[in-house]
Design a protein around this nucleic acid. Sequence first.
DNA 1: TTGATGATTAGAGTAACTCCAATTATAATG
DNA 2: CATTATAATTGGAGTTACTCTAATCATCAA
Lengths: 211, 211
Amino acid sequence: MPKTITPIAGSLRERKKLKTRESIQREAMRLIQKQGYDKTTIEQIAAAVEVSPSTFFNYFPSKEDVVLYDAYDPMIGKLLLDRPADEPLSVAIRHVLEEMGGIFERDREVILARARLWIEVPSLRARLWEELEKGQDFMSGLIAQRSGRAADDFEIRVTVMVVIMAAMEAMREWVRHDGKGSFVATVRRALDLIDAQARLDSLASPDRETR
Amino acid sequence: MPKTITPIAGSLRERKKLKTRESIQREAMRLIQKQGYDKTTIEQIAAAVEVSPSTFFNYFPSKEDVVLYDAYDPMIGKLLLDRPADEPLSVAIRHVLEEMGGIFERDREVILARARLWIEVPSLRARLWEELEKGQDFMSGLIAQRSGRAADDFEIRVTVMVVIMAAMEAMREWVRHDGKGSFVATVRRALDLIDAQARLDSLASPDRETR
DNA sequence: TTGATGATTAGAGTAACTCCAATTATAATG
DNA sequence: CATTATAATTGGAGTTACTCTAATCATCAA
């Protein structure tokens, strides 16, 4: 059994795959912007990229995923993880938000277009839910770990979901106003509104005293 | 042009339609319980009810709707509307919750089975989102009216969504514990947790003074 | 150069829907 | 009761997203 050496990140194959992936997504978005989501078929997208429909499904498990896939999600996750473990969660969240602010400003147009799709196309809107739940699982797990509670702690899950919904509603509000104004500021407003920070802090602080 | 007289509620046609509708839903649920959602086809359901697949789509716009359609939603809506307009919203919500409590207890098994599907089947889970949004629109509209604010007021929408998510998480928690314990009590716990009542009250009280 | 491995593809199949035109059941009218 | 209007049911043809499989083709390691 020949040991497979660690695949080089920049190998021809890898680079090609990445290129194809990006092409598919770019062409898909272009067509969808032009004709609408429902009227754009996988066949059309594949034709535009000059690959077969089969190949499309090699890269994206469903049509929704092309629009849904978001490079920022993993970024946010990483930023959150990189925060010192003893930092209060509310502070961490605010930090991450500000750190993303620049990117959000820079990619404003792209983000706005995609957010609009998320909100306006029923199947995408519904599908977005899945992603929110993944976010909830991720954050809940993180807090659970740091606070020494169970991963499915009711209190944690409720609180985290509330925070996520605040961000979600902020996005909707931001889109409703055609992306005028700062997205980050809108999220901040929502967070202030639900006033969840204090609660998050009390959850996130490790139970040092009890230990 | 012959004026169509108001169709009698209990006319033969109406009764038949209702029966068919109920049969479809009952048989669908039975098959789905037995074989799982994905493995149950519309053809099978139609065959079990002895109608054509076309007829299925006359009654339910999609397969998801058969499982999703919930007799309690309109009930809750009606109960909420029936509360005196000057009653603080938090009180109204608690009232409605307690009023539904008996029904929830009585139909526990049915509700649990359906809730399980909602949570476990991805397409249903995603689709549930749509319903939550309808709920948000309804409640936001109600509060907006009573408080004299705009229908798409950001603060209202965020707060309402938070309350809905609390109920949603309560359902998940309740299902996670196999429906042991009171559903209403779990929702109460979630509501207490988010402590949103005070905020709701401040939103719901009409701005009598300012007027 | 060769042999393995991974990517691309065509093709056949499934199932949820949509649309439409034909048929059948119920209701209203003279 | 006979007739006409209306509503419900149906079959059939078509679209599209997606799955599975087996063959072909490109890249890579040796």
